[in-house]
Computed example of a mutant assay.
Amino acid sequence: MKTETNKPLAFRKYPSTTALQCFETAARHLSFTNAAQEMHMTQSAISKQVAQLEEMLKISLFYRTPHRISLTPAGKTYYLEVLEILKHIEVATTSLMSHSDNVEVLKIASHPTFCSRWLLPALSGFSQAHPLINLDIKEQVGPFFTEDQNVDIAFLYGDGIWGGMEAIKLFDEYCVAVCQPEYLHDKNPCTSNVDNCTLLQLSSRPSAWYEYFKQQGISIDGTFIGPRFDTFHACIAAALLGYGIALVPLRLVAPELQSGTLVTAWRYAAKGRGSYYITYPLSLGRSHKVKVILEWVSAYLETSNQHELMLGHVLNSIDIVDSL
C-alpha cells in the first residue's frame, strides 16, 4: 500500500512550466501584453495561465488595475524563486541536448586565480585528446564538495587532509612580494620599515603579511593598511596598476616576473603553510573520467620542464625560507 510520501510525482500538485513561464514573463515586463508578445501567445492566454496559477496557489501574485499590473509581496518572492527554477531547467536541458549518449561530463572546481593561471594551461588540448569527456569547470572559493555542487574533481590548497577525499599533492606554495617596477622608485622599501609601502591584502589570508615577515625573523608592530581583495587575481591586477605590493604564490605570478612587468619588492620567497592538491571523492576512485584527468595532470607536471626551469631561475634570484 502506498503512503503519502511515496506517491508518484504526477499525483502531486505542481504548476506547469507554461504557467511558470507566463508568470515570469509577465512579472518581468509587468505587462500581460508585452508578455504575450514575447511568448507568442494572446494576452488572454497569458492572463488565464497566471489566473490558474494563482488559483492553484490560493494567493494573488499581481495587483491589477485597468491600466497596469504590479507584483504583490508574495508575487515578488515567488518571481525570484521561479526565475531560479526556470534557469535550472534551461541549463539542465541545454547540457543534456549538447552531449551525446556516450559523453561523460567531468565537473571540476578550482579557486579562480589557480584556474586561470595554472589549470587552464594544464588542460590545454585535453578536449581534443578525449572528445568523449566534456569539461565543466567552475571557479569558486569554496566549499567545493557539497550535495548541491556535485563536483568530481577539485584543485585545493591546504594540508591534503579532507574527510572522505583522496588528495594527490601537486606542488608546494612559495609566496613572493611583487609590485610594479616604478612603484619602488621613490619608496626604497626595506623589511625593517614598511610604513611607506601599501601592502595589498587577501581577504582569506588576513595574517599572510605577518607570517611573511615572521619567517624572516622580522617583527612588525601595528597593523597593515591597504586595499583588500577576494582573489589573488585581483591582487596581481592591483599590483600591475601600481596600487602597492602584493603577496602572491610564485607560480601564479611567474610570467609577470619573467617579463619584468612585476618585480620582487624583497628577495624572499616564503613557503606557505599548505600545498596544492588535486582531490576527488573516494567513491570516484575507479571512475574512468577521474583516472583520465589524473593521468593528464601527472603527464603535464612531468613534461612542463620549461615552466619549471623558469621557476628555478626566479627562485635562484631570491632567498627561500622553508619553515614557519
Rank of each mutant, 00 (worst) to 15 (best):
L83S: 12
Q128M: 07
Y183A: 00
E38L: 13
A122L: 07
S219I: 10
V178M: 06
D186Q: 00
V50E: 06
G163Q: 15
A27M: 00
Y79Q: 12
G163N: 15
K7D: 04
D230M: 13
E302Y: 07
Q180H: 09
D319F: 14
A45Y: 09
E81Q: 15
I168E: 12
E308G: 03
L119P: 10
A19P: 00
Y157C: 09
S259T: 14
A92W: 11
K76P: 07
G163F: 03
D136I: 08
S192Q: 10
C22H: 14
P189G: 07
S98K: 09
T231H: 13
N316F: 10
T42W: 05
A74L: 03
G312S: 04
S317R: 15
K291G: 12
L282N: 04
S98P: 13
V290T: 11
K214S: 11
L96E: 01
T198R: 01
S100R: 14
L184Q: 09
Y79M: 12
M56W: 02
D322F: 09
H185K: 15
C190G: 05
A109C: 07
G285V: 08
N316Y: 13
S207F: 10
V178I: 02
H99E: 07
L57T: 06
E147C: 00
H67K: 15
V178C: 04
V290W: 15
Q37N: 01
T191P: 14
V141T: 08
A270H: 12
A26G: 06
S47T: 09
I278S: 01
G142R: 13
N305M: 08
K76D: 05
E211Q: 00
S100E: 01
V292N: 03
V91R: 00
A19F: 07
L250C: 08
E55Y: 03
L20P: 03
F114A: 10
L309N: 10
M165F: 05
R68F: 14
A74F: 15
M97L: 12
G226C: 06
D172E: 12
M41Q: 06
Y174A: 11
Q52V: 05
T191A: 05
S116A: 05
T72P: 11
Q21G: 08
E166K: 15
K291S: 13
Q140S: 05
T231F: 01
H307E: 14
D195Y: 06
E84F: 14
I218K: 03
D136V: 09
Q216T: 02
E90S: 07
R64M: 11
H29M: 05
R12I: 06
I320V: 00
E81N: 15
F114T: 10
F232P: 08
T264Q: 03
M41E: 01
L250T: 07
S304F: 05
P143H: 01
L200V: 13
S317E: 09
I46E: 02
S203A: 02
E90G: 07
D136L: 02
T93C: 08
M97T: 01
F229L: 09
L247C: 12
Y79G: 03
L61D: 07
A238M: 04
E295T: 04
R205G: 08
L282K: 15
Q215R: 10
V248T: 00
